[in-house]
Amino acid sequence: MIVGSGPASRGEFKLLGGDVISSNHGSPIPIGYGYSAYTVCCGYPYGSATGNVLIAGGTWTGYEGWNLGALSNSLGTVVVSNGTVSIGPGIYGSGKPINVGASDDSRGDFTMAGGTFLMNGVGSASDTGWRSESAATAWVTCE
């Protein structure tokens, strides 16, 4: 799954109720990506995509997590206002599951205003499971 997949595209995923179970086959879900196989032939630039995820109810069980802002100039946003989010442990690998500003010159925003967030199976006491690229912008807000 990719939310905001193509260059300069926008994807929205809104969970209002029910249950989502996602392993995404081994890698964090790109939220705000902008990749195209047609970049070389057709001149589409990478990036500049927007992906928004709203969790306002229900449960999201995501073993592989999220990359917020997965290519240059892309924006990935997750807002949790209610419901339950459970991230990890990764089924296929050991990479960090939550990457806020996952690529150079990208931006990731994570806002939690309600609900429950559980981070499971992170490797060690000093490993939070959260990561940001050094040249990216990351905002994590708990209101």
Binding site: V3, S9, G17, I21, H25, T50
Partner: peptide, 30 residues
């Protein structure tokens, strides 16, 4: 499953998914 992909992976696409009940299982690759 690509949400907002543009035609054939092109640009300027828009997609929206809303789930309000039931069970959604995603094991698609990225």
């Amino acid at each position: 499953m690509d949400i907002g992909s543009g035609y054939k992976g092109g640009q300027n696409g828009y997609g929206q998914v809303i789930i309000s009940n039931g069970l959604f299982v995603n094991n698609s690759g990225s």
